[in-house]
Design a protein around this nucleic acid. Structure first.
Lengths: 157, 157
DNA sequence: CAATGTGGTTGCATTATTAAACTTCATTGC
DNA sequence: GCAATGAAGTTTAATAATGCAACCACATTG
């Protein structure tokens, strides 16, 4: 069957999904961003099979989303923590959260809200802004071919 | 295999992934937001098997992300267009795109950039803001239990 | 040093994905 | 008006991923 890979796709959305777009990866990343670090913590929190968790952790490490570090409690085990590349996924988690908050049919089943740590007040909705600060909706945007970088152009000459 | 359903989960991230978190749905939604409407357009653009496309379109309609409308060209076929709930996914697509733009190992393979339609200039990065307008990173946020709505509280009394 | 806990791996049954062939209805060419 | 083509699916059979349970190696605890 060979599940079609999106790795070589030219669309940045597809490329992101190729890295962490499977059923469990984003949930693992979510838990990691909440401070979970140990294999057992992920397994208990997510309720997934251990073999699948092992596979996912391995590929997320391979892809530079997570890295393994010696356990913080001095034991000989290892822990999994987000790399900068992994921390960069945070806005995606926020966007997913906010979509559910706005459109879910049963918002009363949502357990938590995201708040500003300082003030304890709910965060604002993510907004897409133009360079001059206008709020943009989907209809206010277009896609253009990526301009070739100067260095790349010089290399071609 | 019995893919574990996340529908009843209390985490809003999991609930969103339960709706469109599979391998193809977000790509279909991406294409829909680019103006693709017909079965054949999706199939040609995504290169996925027709049976899977048919299944995905059906469940996305069931879940209120897409709706079917009579074809715009007067033919007897139908077209698939985003509902408001589906349009609400746009920020998630933007977040995925921007993550790839920032962290991908081969950014030269990315074909397009998102620009402001008016000015033709690249959009800004999505930013998470507090109520008083400060930019928040992951470390500046926490999760709190969802406060009970007034109406719900009154219903309990 | 035996017992338990952590962090996996292995094997098997079940379910999902895929490509290709087939079906149905609408549209076009003649 | 009728055959041929195309759009939009459905069906079928092979293959890959998932889930569950059992097993294993090593570390830690009593």
């Amino acid at each position: 069957m060979k599940r079609t890979s999106l790795a070589g796709d030219s669309c940045p959305v597809a490329r992101a999904l190729d890295v962490f777009g499977d059923w469990w990866s984003l949930l693992i990343i979510r838990d990691a961003s909440l401070g979970r670090r140990r294999f057992g913590e992920f397994q208990a929190g997510l309720g997934l099979a251990k073999n699948i968790l092992a596979t996912r952790l391995r590929t997320l490490v391979e892809r530079g989303i997570l890295k393994t570090v010696p356990a913080s409690d001095g034991s000989a085990y290892q822990e999994y923590v987000l790399t900068p590349k992994g921390h960069g996924i945070f806005p995606i988690l926020v966007a997913l959260r906010q979509w559910t908050e706005e459109f879910d049919e049963h918002p009363d089943e949502i357990a938590t809200i995201m708040v500003d740590r300082d003030k304890g007040r709910p965060v604002r909705k993510l907004a897409l802004l133009s360079q001059d600060g206008r709020v943009l909706g989907a209809a206010d945007t277009t896609l253009k071919p990526r301009p070739v970088k100067k260095t790349a152009r010089r290399a071609l000459v």
